[in-house]
């Protein structure tokens, strides 16, 4: 009789833990300095940007603008730049997809195949990004240039016609975007793959899954949180970027970021720039929210 009970003890009821881990009281005070910073330098400017977007466009930087609740700014902005918006989101979507294709094997290899080289590989993932973003983009410009090695090679094997070029094409712009945002995809993917219990994959194999089926039905679903945050961290900056389009493309490849930047800094057409910014922000945030909802991730940050 009195057989030993060898199952590990159940953890204490979660209510008990929650009650103690999170103390009520003055804790929210810690939030105030940072929240004030965000309120003054992010929320307030965003609201103000919204009002700026409704100024009378006939004003100018020198003469000032009149607040006329000129909603038509938005219509003008959309008509004026709808192709830029479409191109930006298309480039960003392709970039995100290619990043996922490249980063997934890399993250998977680091998480499951790297053994004791895991930390070394992780360092190597971020190492190229220690150096300046602009310098790296500039060197891509050189590498992809008309007399550069990639173009010559592609011409030699006749993928590109002899007078074909890479620089100043959408391919170059997207290649630059992919390169620059790759670690934003790799690191979240790695983080969630690393949490996947390897025994689950073995269990799938034990239950007659081929390696591919095991990946499709077990590993990939478990890595979805990383896919979600990786795609977001890639898509958001890619959709607003204008450096790659400027350095690797021509005005034909310009994205919405180029237009906003020009409207603000060159033309100083603040109502137009503001309405473009608001549209971009609203579209991105809406896409993010819909995407996150559909992916079923509750906690955003």
């Amino acid at each position: 009789m009195t057989e030993a009970v060898t199952t590990p003890p159940a953890p204490p009821a979660p209510v008990v833990d929650g009650e103690n881990a999170r103390r009520r009281g003055w804790g929210w005070l810690l939030l105030i300095p940072g929240m004030l910073w965000l309120a003054i330098f992010f929320l307030f400017p965003t609201v103000q940007l919204f009002f700026t977007s409704l100024y009378d466009p006939s004003g100018s930087f020198e003469r000032g603008y009149a607040m006329t609740w000129h909603v038509a700014n938005y219509a003008d902005a959309i008509i004026d730049t709808s192709n830029l918006f479409l191109r930006s989101f298309m480039y960003a979507a392709i970039t995100t997809f290619v990043c996922l294709l490249l980063a997934y094997p890399l993250a998977y290899a680091i998480a499951f195949k790297s053994g004791r080289w895991k930390n070394v590989m992780l360092v190597l993932v971020i190492a190229p990004f220690f150096t300046s973003f602009l310098l790296r983009t500039l060197s891509w410009r050189a590498i992809l240039s008309d007399r550069g090695p990639v173009t010559s090679f592609l011409q030699t094997i006749a993928i590109l016609p002899d007078d074909g070029r890479l620089l100043a094409t959408p391919v170059a712009v997207i290649a630059g975007l992919v390169y620059n945002f790759l670690p934003f995809m790799t690191l979240p993917l790695y983080a969630s793959l690393d949490k996947v219990d390897h025994r689950l994959i073995e269990a799938a194999g034990d239950l007659y899954s081929s390696p591919f089926t095991g990946f499709r039905t077990v590993t990939f679903p478990l890595s979805l949180p990383g896919v979600v945050s990786g795609t977001l961290l890639t898509f958001i900056p890619a959709s607003g970027d204008y450096i790659n389009a400027e350095l690797l493309g021509t005005p034909k490849q310009y994205m919405i970021g180029n237009r906003i930047q020009a409207a603000f800094l060159t033309e100083r057409n603040y109502p137009l720039a503001a309405s473009l910014s608001i549209i971009l922000m609203v579209v991105v945030v809406l896409m993010v929210i819909v995407y996150v909802r559909r992916a079923g991730t509750e906690e955003l940050v």
């Binding site: 992010f42 103000q48 970027d241 906003i260 991105v284 955003l300 940050v301």
Partner: peptide
């Protein structure tokens, strides 16, 4: 800590990350 407005705080913290940099920069300049 627990307090009212945690969800709102999380949203306010999330928004700058979901906003393209060009919007962050332009609104701050404005």
């Amino acid at each position: 800590h627990t307090f009212r407005g945690r969800a709102t705080s999380n949203l306010v913290i999330f928004l700058p990350m979901a906003t393209p940099e060009v919007v962050l920069g332009s609104s701050l300049l404005a």
